Simulated assay, not measured.
Amino acid sequence: MHSSLLADAPAIREPRYAPVAHVTRGGVIEGIHYGSVVVLDSDGDVRLSIGDIETACYPRSALKPVQAVAMVRAGLPLDGALLSLAMGSHSAEEHHLAGARLILERAGLTEDDLRNVPDLPYAPAVRDAWVREGRGPSRLAQNCSGKHAAMLYLCKLSGWPLETYLDPAHPLQTAIAETVGELTGQHIAHVTVDGCGAPLFSVSLHGLARAAARIATAAPDTAERRVADALRLHPEMASGTGRDTAELMRAVPGLLAKDGFEGIQMAALPDGSAVAVKIADGADRARIPVTAAALAWAGADPRLLVGFEGEPMTGGGRPVGGIRPVPLLNPPTAPAPA
Rank of each mutant, 00 (worst) to 15 (best):
H234K: 05
P270H: 07
A276V: 05
T245P: 02
L233H: 13
A274T: 00
A283H: 11
A268I: 00
L255F: 04
L269K: 00
D271C: 07
G272S: 07
T245M: 13
E236Y: 10
R243P: 01
D281I: 11
V252E: 01
K258N: 09
D271S: 06
P270W: 02
E247D: 14
I279K: 06
L269I: 02
V277N: 03
G242K: 09
V275G: 00
L269Q: 01
L248W: 05
L233W: 12
E236G: 01
A267R: 04
A276M: 07
P270R: 07
L256P: 01
L256R: 01
A268M: 01
K278I: 10
G240E: 03
A267Y: 02
R243Y: 11
P270G: 09
A251H: 09
M237T: 04
G254Y: 02
T245L: 12
R250K: 15
A238P: 05
V275T: 08
P235Q: 08
S273M: 03
L233G: 14
V275F: 00
P253R: 08
D281K: 10
M266L: 15
R285C: 11
I279W: 00
G240N: 08
S239W: 01
R285A: 13
H234Y: 14
D271P: 03
A268G: 02
M266C: 13
P253A: 10
G260N: 06
L233S: 15
D281Y: 09
A268P: 04
L248P: 05
G240C: 10
I279C: 07
G272F: 00
M249S: 03
R285N: 09
A257C: 14
G263Q: 08
A280M: 11
R285V: 12
G263S: 11
A267T: 06
T241M: 14
A276P: 02
D271F: 03
D284E: 15
V277K: 06
K278D: 05
A257Y: 01
A274K: 00
V252L: 03
A274H: 00
E236F: 07
Q265S: 14
E247Y: 04
E247F: 05
G260F: 05
P270A: 11
P270Y: 05
A251F: 06
D259M: 13
G240P: 05
R243I: 07
I279M: 06
L248T: 11
R250I: 07
P235K: 07
M237D: 12
M237P: 04
H234E: 07
T241Q: 13
G242W: 06
A283Q: 11
P235H: 04
D284N: 15
A257R: 01
A268D: 00
F261P: 11
L269T: 02
V252Y: 01
A276N: 04
D259P: 08
V275K: 00
T245V: 15
S239I: 06
E262S: 14
L255C: 09
Q265H: 15
G254I: 07
I264K: 13
R243S: 10
A280C: 10
M249G: 02
G282I: 12
G272Y: 00
D271Q: 08
R243C: 10
A251Y: 04
M249A: 06
A251N: 09
S239T: 15
P235L: 06
A276H: 02
L269N: 01
D284P: 02
D281F: 09
D259N: 15
A274S: 14
A280V: 10
R285Y: 07
G240W: 04
S273A: 14
A280I: 10
A267F: 04
M266H: 09
A276T: 05
G263K: 05
L248Q: 04
